[in-house]
Design a protein around this nucleic acid. Sequence first.
DNA 1: TTGCGATTCGCCTTTTATTCGCTAAAATGT
DNA 2: ACATTTTAGCGAATAAAAGGCGAATCGCAA
Lengths: 199, 199
Amino acid sequence: MAITRRQKDVLDFLTSFTQRCGYSPSYEEIASGLGVNSLATVHKHITNLQNKGLLQRAHNRSRSIDVLPARSKKGTDRLPLLGRIAAGRPVEAVETAETISLSDILGNREVFALEVRGDSMRDEHIVSGDYVLVERTRTAREGEIVVALVDGTDATLKRFYREGSMIRLQPSNSEMAPIFAPAAAVTIQGKVLGVLRKY
Amino acid sequence: MAITRRQKDVLDFLTSFTQRCGYSPSYEEIASGLGVNSLATVHKHITNLQNKGLLQRAHNRSRSIDVLPARSKKGTDRLPLLGRIAAGRPVEAVETAETISLSDILGNREVFALEVRGDSMRDEHIVSGDYVLVERTRTAREGEIVVALVDGTDATLKRFYREGSMIRLQPSNSEMAPIFAPAAAVTIQGKVLGVLRKY
DNA sequence: TTGCGATTCGCCTTTTATTCGCTAAAATGT
DNA sequence: ACATTTTAGCGAATAAAAGGCGAATCGCAA
């Protein structure tokens, strides 16, 4: 997990101290154990290790460090969900174990991606260049965003509505008109599970 | 995607060093381990191996090389990119070998996710409920979308502009005013690499 | 309320990664 | 056989992260 030499020293010290004593060391004890003279240095190490998810600690509590069992392989695809933005709080130190990954969106379904061209879903905040993540399915529920084929020729991204024997494919762009077609002429190729954008 | 003799040397060295020490070698250590005299050479090797997907590393981070277990290939996180939508062609059978995954966006950087609240980036089509994928960094370039802390209290998502000694943090919402602050009062916590949305 | 450990701050030094320009050999395509 | 691309290498300059310091401050628990 990208650990430096010194960080390993710290981690090793913590592990063996805790092993030996049954409780975790104070910062002062860590400092002398490592041969450093400043508690600030120790604190920085501990904070870094915590950010890497290798240990846990309670804020401002004595001897509250807890070395976590060496995490097995974390995939590149799983990343920590640190909190919410624009909530008015610094981002770091929000110790949550939460993570997010593509598989949270995909489940185990058969999914493919499409790069979006055009602005037909602009009001849904899906814009040109985005990737839509699409589950391959032949049916859709009212109001879902689908990839639909009309008359076997045009694949488009629209919201799906059933109106009697007709299908309405509704763009999310006030400047564009909905498509009406008989149910027989519309093939659903999949429904949108998510959106991915890359800057 | 073949591997060259020299590249295998590098990979083997990395594996055994990491095995031996519990942390990955610095470029200097790699250089002497391989008997080359230039860090640039090492850097190029590492970059090439990374491009081949045989290892990963974080940008500008010490000892962050991580040799990947030879191709486990789960498949959940990598999905086929079938083509473009709204281009007027049925989706299926396009069979480009292209794929997309989170790691295409993330590279191998240190990344975390934040759930977005509020509409300050609405005109960029980042809306409440979306997840922004953020690289932890302290600097930003002109015009990038950043997570910034103003006066150490408020974390917000804005576009970053430098104006003399001042920083302008520009929301993408015509109803909201930009924030001007002296450079010293603004801390960049990261910059946005991508967006993920889940329906 | 007081004391001790934890936290934060500003500043410095060392370590490490990245980039640039250049050369040359090997592999590859036409 | 030739042109082109990829691999391998060099040294130097730069930039960023990691490691470090002492002092001041904060917060919990006794």
